[in-house]
Write a protein that binds this DNA or RNA. Structure first.
Lengths: 340, 340
DNA sequence: CTGTTAGCGCCTTCAG
DNA sequence: CTGAAGGCGCTAACAG
């Protein structure tokens, strides 16, 4: 029935009390008589009183809102991260304002400005691929708003970081290929930025070196957009080499799917002739045939951890405790399937 | 350098002006001298002044925030919807507070309460599967907060609705099977709620009837959780029938993938022996082999449209214009691939 | 035990 | 052209 929203004032007037008294009664202050407390509570219930979060936020200079900037929502890995963020935020009593940069630094800057003006209590961000400076985030630090970066990070601001062990994941993948007898292992890698692509490339090199295999630069192909089409095209090129590879490690499952198509089209068998390994363990990996071996990265957990750290920093700051910056690295896991 | 946030007051003091004057100067009121305007603006820039959104929201009793409740974020279709919501919200100048119900009515109720207390300007919701009443949303209406439901909706509140044409999509899928010569068409359907599953089932029946085929109840299987496992298990059962089907229409691509496995395991060929069609056109549909025929539903567009309608209702209400409830149905599209 | 006062940061009549 | 006053809804000293 309450057409308009009911405030403390309304309750106070009806009861012939003062706003302050009503406020205290509802917050169970010790210096209010049990009787008035009861009266106030009863009427508050009847009138469906609900405190105005806005007023509280203004008063307390705290919004209980976390800002999130993510490159792409429609992405199996990132949607897992978001889910982890939202669940943990809820657990800690925060809400989540979600934005996407669409892998564009320009839009990332815009969203950052917006979130800052919304007075979020903290920021969770995974950088866009072409983000090459973090100046747009400096203002958060100046305003004392904690930042936690995840997945695609930049350590130069001294913020807490949450990443997965890309290098080790790639290392395990390639080592597995070597142990199953492969010697001519190609790598279809991601672009020079972001960092994640470099780390996976390093892991690949680590494994190759450790095994004493010679590194063949012809076997390295660099994706620009990390698409299925690129996977297909680069694989086609690889198969035309005088010594075609007997295994391919791809930066991403999607790229691996492209590779899979090219390999089949060329009449080779997987894994007999050419083994294939992807990265990320998307929902697609287990359902293609042959099922794709892939490096699983714990997206949900990444979201949870990043949020946990961020809220801890926010609350430490409020309690004037020293904030401990953290940099955590989550374990990746090789899921071996039929393709290798 | 600005350690603490800068307010109108700070600017006013430095310039020996009053808060009111500064406020007006920044908002380009006609009754402020060009000189002071210039001075104020200059200093505001230098001090990196940014209006406190909280204060504005309190003052204007408007948050520019849309609340979103979605069953599952980690879901290819829904993540597309979210992306559409966020992009359109940004275009119209709103932010998005995202929550997930995890397909639980209990959590849905909780999130609704939370969003209401956050004073969102409007609500976008897709109901959880087991949500059988909408009492928890009544309060939004009482408070005059517009609601738009999408995908899994309930028309009983008289809110605007955005859906896809599930019935016609299913109809087209089954008609396509019939036209390619299939006569014994099975349907692995979803549970009795939500409505979407029923509509797809109806579309199936429509096509069967139109073709004058006899309906065989043995050919209908009802999923409980709509999983790949269920698809596999039900298909196995179907293949054991005296007259096994020569085509299967599945409620979801994931279920179809399960069916695909069972069919292959039983030694049948797709599509020669048994044709297969899914629904949703997930990212997985195009990459499995044989590639899966599926009914595409425009998730991104659904998010955009729902948001557009919601913002229109919000702004119509503010302008005291009559609000036009809308119910729109987006077209689905059959993507024919190798499996049929 | 209850009320008064003084803001949080901003906007908007209404005076001067 | 500028300032004073009141208020959005709530909290937190400090009085009484």
């Amino acid at each position: 029935m309450a057409k308009t929203t009911v405030t403390l004032k309304d309750i106070a007037q009806r009861l012939g009390l003062t706003i302050a008294t009503v406020s205290k009664a509802l917050k169970d202050y010790p210096d209010i008589s049990p009787l008035t407390k009861a009266n106030v509570r009863k009427l508050a219930d009847e009138m469906h009183y609900s405190p105005n979060a806005l007023a509280l936020k203004l008063r307390k200079r705290k919004t209980f809102v976390l800002g999130v900037i993510i490159p792409e929502i429609v992405h199996h890995f990132f949607s897992n991260v978001i889910s982890g963020i939202i669940d943990m935020a809820e657990e800690r009593g925060y809400n989540v304002l979600l934005t996407q940069s669409d892998e564009s630094m320009e839009r990332e800057i815009k969203e950052a400005k917006l979130l800052l003006s919304q007075r979020v209590d903290g920021l969770l961000i995974s950088l866009a691929n072409n983000t090459d400076t973090v100046d747009h985030l400096k203002e958060f630090q100046e305003m004392g708003v904690p930042i936690v970066m995840f997945d695609k990070v930049n350590g130069s601001m001294g913020t807490s970081l949450v990443q997965v062990d890309n290098r080790n994941g790639a290392f395990l993948a390639v080592k597995h290929l070597i142990e199953s007898g492969r010697r001519r292992i190609a790598h279809i890698r991601g672009p020079i930025v972001p960092q994640t692509a470099n780390e996976r490339h390093k892991g690949y090199c680590d494994a190759i070196e450790e095994a004493g295999l010679k590194t063949n630069l012809e076997y390295i192909r660099v994706c620009k957009d990390v698409t299925q089409q690129e996977g297909e095209e680069f694989t086609r090129q690889l198969l035309l080499l005088p010594e075609p590879p007997d295994a391919i490690f791809c930066i991403t499952d999607l790229v691996a799917i492209g590779a899979m198509k090219a390999i089949k089209d060329a009449g080779y068998r997987i894994p007999e002739d050419i083994a294939l390994v992807g990265f990320s363990d998307w929902n697609i990996a287990a359902v293609v045939s042959p099922a794709l071996t892939s490096v699983y990265q714990p997206g949900y957990e990444m979201g949870q951890q990043a949020t946990r750290i961020l809220v801890n920093e926010i609350e430490a700051k409020e309690a004037k405790l020293p904030v401990q910056r953290q940099s955590i690295v989550l374990k990746t896991e090789l899921k071996i399937r039929a393709s290798s």
